[in-house]
Design a protein around this nucleic acid. Structure first.
Lengths: 344, 344
DNA sequence: TTGAAAGCGCTAACAT
DNA sequence: ATGTTAGCGCTTTCAA
């Protein structure tokens, strides 16, 4: 802004001309190639420093077929869990010189398809994705894998084998320990508010719940299990039905904290005492679950750990440490933990 | 994955060869140039569809000097306000064919400098930034403006004139209406927990507070105003000092909700009744402020509106509707609103 | 309406 | 240790 409009080309050619060197030498310096004389290197570095030259990534990317960018697709990054994961991934990748291109599918399959394609057009070096609730067919990611762009899924991941790295929280165990916790507290009439069973996370959490119930020889009442979109509204409707006529449940297990919070608020409104009359367990340790009164027992998924694992895995693949020989790798499971609070 | 490894080059040349056309014609079709025969266009489109050809953005970017990518720098995107703004920006830009490269400075000035440079290296078409608390000198953004890459600041913005578009919430008014609200409720002894006055948002909010106090001829007690990093810990320390000896304040105005929440929790712990003994106002309508008991009165900044304004402004600049003739544009101020809740 | 050719800025053989 | 040269895939004059 101070200096008058420079017609500086800001290219390696300009540097070469000014320093009476060839572009190749400049390039070598910039890329830390070994066979460059120290004097030359210093001369170049000094000049680069002085002029503020910054390499054009598009040009080098075109040549080398690498962009130093990683694409990320999430349903919504305002979802607490994703916010945390993304934070970790962005920082981790930046430390290794990668940019992160972040996209949201808004839980729309069409958008997700569009985004996979867009990211391919950008020739990102890798793609990380948490899919929509309705993604059952994952072939729109084929364009990436076919062109040797590694794909990593996390959270909502393919149920069928797919040629991609998979990272997820231990949803089965999460469901299991949440249910076991309630059972150990003496709850006899447990209702479960699940998401749709098209999505792996709800399948697994439910399976964990089922296992715990079976282990304790407790019957699962069909009309006490709900499979629905996990909105506050749906949670309230479920509560209304559950408490329409006795016997009433003595515990609600919710497949996420949004639902648990809605359940709690409904209970407070209609005068059901928590935890005396009804115990509540949520899932994912949303910050609000800690702050509400009474605070809600929930499952911590350690999103920062998930993010860290993803960073490690994606870097491996970017560095070529993982060949394409491993076609259908085993999912990586990140441990979860029960956080006990006042609602139980 | 189904088909055997194709040696398809996936380039315009290949399409040209297959269709017995020149690369130029393919390019014209892809870019919707007018002078192409409809038959040819259809033939090309059909083939593109069939083969799944996707243009290499790096190559076209190198040629045209555009990347269809916008860079974004925020302190942390886990901060509620930014999460919302980013959500809006990403969706808005995607609808116009732009990718968003999202970076976090972690409130570190060095990181911010690094990121500005990285984004220039990527030759993004524009940069949107919410600065760190300590950014006072903005010259690290010069490399962008000098190279005609438009820069837009929001939230934490330059205090001095800078050649960039500036969008922000009406912090002055926010501070003013929050304080006025307390005064109208009859509060006589208002304490203000501010962030450091190096940052425009805290300067403005404080100024609003000051104006309201002056308007009502109320003195501001120096030892009841704190300028500190807005952490829960600092908030608790401030509370401890405020309630160490009488007279005690009858209202706390906090420059953000994290602080307001910490104040409320401290008050509950030590048995100060809210709102009878102490009224509390926060800032920014963090979701937790609505859910805590009692819920906290706060200032809504409408982050989605801020995001929308940013999208509009950045698109204007990307389309070249805003020439560089407007060097130091007036900031765009997005209205705020008081949300009254139980804490007052 | 279409094609030929040059070139965006960089890197990597190959040559010296 | 350095230079020469070709080309990554695309767009855009200019010419036909």
């Amino acid at each position: 802004m101070k200096t008058p409009k420079q017609t500086k080309k800001n290219s390696i050619q300009e540097l070469a001309k000014a320093l009476r060197l060839s572009p190749a030498t400049i390039s070598r310096v910039l890329n830390n190639h070994p066979h460059v004389h120290t004097t030359t290197r210093n001369r170049v570095m000094a000049f680069v420093e002085k002029t503020g030259y910054t390499r054009n990534i598009m040009a080098s990317g075109l040549r080398t077929n690498r962009t130093n960018a990683v694409g990320l697709i999430v349903p919504r990054f305002s979802m607490f869990m994703h916010t945390e994961v993304i934070t970790t991934i962005q920082s981790g990748l930046h430390a290794h010189g990668y940019n992160l291109i972040i996209c949201q599918s808004n839980d729309s399959l069409d958008m997700e398809k569009d985004l996979a394609r867009t990211l391919y057009a950008s020739r990102v070096d890798a793609v990380i994705a948490a899919c929509t609730l309705s993604t059952a067919d994952f072939s729109h990611f084929d364009i990436l894998t076919e062109n040797d762009i590694p794909v990593l899924f996390y959270d909502r991941v393919p149920v069928q084998p797919y040629n991609a790295c998979i990272v997820k929280g231990d949803d089965f165990r999460g469901g299991f320990i949440a249910a076991s916790h309630l059972i150990q507290l003496g709850c006899k009439r447990i209702s479960y508010l699940s998401g749709s069973l098209t999505c792996n996370i709800y399948i697994d959490r439910y399976a964990g719940f089922e296992k715990a119930m079976m282990q304790h020889k407790m019957a699962i009442r069909k009309d006490w299990v709900f499979y629905q979109e996990l909105t506050a509204d749906n949670a309230r409707k479920a509560m209304y039905r559950l408490f329409a006529k006795a016997p009433f449940p003595d515990a609600i297990m919710a497949a996420n904290d949004v639902t648990a919070i809605a359940v709690l608020e409904y209970a407070k409104e209609v005068g059901i005492k928590i935890p005396e009359d009804l115990r509540i367990v949520g899932y994912s340790n949303d910050p609000r679950s800690a702050i509400i009164t009474p605070s809600i027992t929930t499952i911590e998924q350690f999103p920062a750990n998930i993010g860290q694992v993803i960073v490690t895995e994606v870097l491996k693949r970017l560095k070529g440490d993982v060949g394409s020989e491993v076609l259908y790798p085993e999912p990586i499971i990140v441990p979860v933990e029960l956080i006990r609070r006042m609602s139980t």
